[in-house]
Amino acid sequence: MEQALTIVVFSHLRWNWVWQRPQHLLSRLAKRHRILFIEEPVLIEDGRAAHWKLDEPEPNLRVFTPFTRIPEGGFHDHQLPVLKTLLDDLAHRERLHHP
């Protein structure tokens, strides 16, 4: 049996913002593959440490929103060190391996 791929998508769109072509295509791909949809970071306003928020809107589709203490929005260069740490943790938790 063919092993399903894991598709990791970094998006500037929020999954639940407006249903557009990316959500349509990824929902269809999720029928055969595991999808990890990573949204742009959100600023933490309560002083907690950087962390992920996870939503699972459909089977095989996981939406991860990183929360950081970095005020620059989007995938800004200042976000990258924090995101790298979060992504390393995510890769371990989701059992993502390099070929």
Rank of each mutant, 00 (worst) to 15 (best):
M1C: 00
E2V: 08
Q3C: 12
T6R: 11
T6C: 09
I7H: 01
S11Q: 08
H12D: 15
L13F: 12
L13S: 12
W17C: 05
V18I: 13
V18W: 12
P22A: 10
Q23N: 06
H24K: 13
S27H: 03
R28I: 11
K31N: 12
H33N: 07
H33L: 06
I35H: 01
F37K: 07
I38F: 01
I38A: 01
E39F: 14
E40L: 02
P41Q: 09
L43Y: 10
L43G: 06
L43N: 02
E45P: 04
D46S: 08
R48Q: 15
A50H: 10
A50W: 11
H51G: 02
H51W: 02
W52I: 04
K53F: 11
K53V: 13
D55I: 04
D55R: 08
E56G: 04
P57H: 03
E58F: 09
L61C: 06
R62L: 13
R62C: 06
R62S: 09
T65K: 08
T65W: 05
F67P: 02
T68K: 05
T68V: 01
T68C: 03
R69A: 13
R69E: 14
E72M: 01
G73Y: 01
G74P: 04
F75M: 00
H76W: 04
H78D: 14
Q79E: 05
P81S: 04
P81F: 03
L83P: 14
L83E: 15
L83N: 14
L83I: 14
K84S: 12
A91R: 12
A91C: 12
H92S: 13
R95E: 09
R95A: 07
L96E: 10
L96T: 11
H97S: 15
H97I: 09
P99W: 14
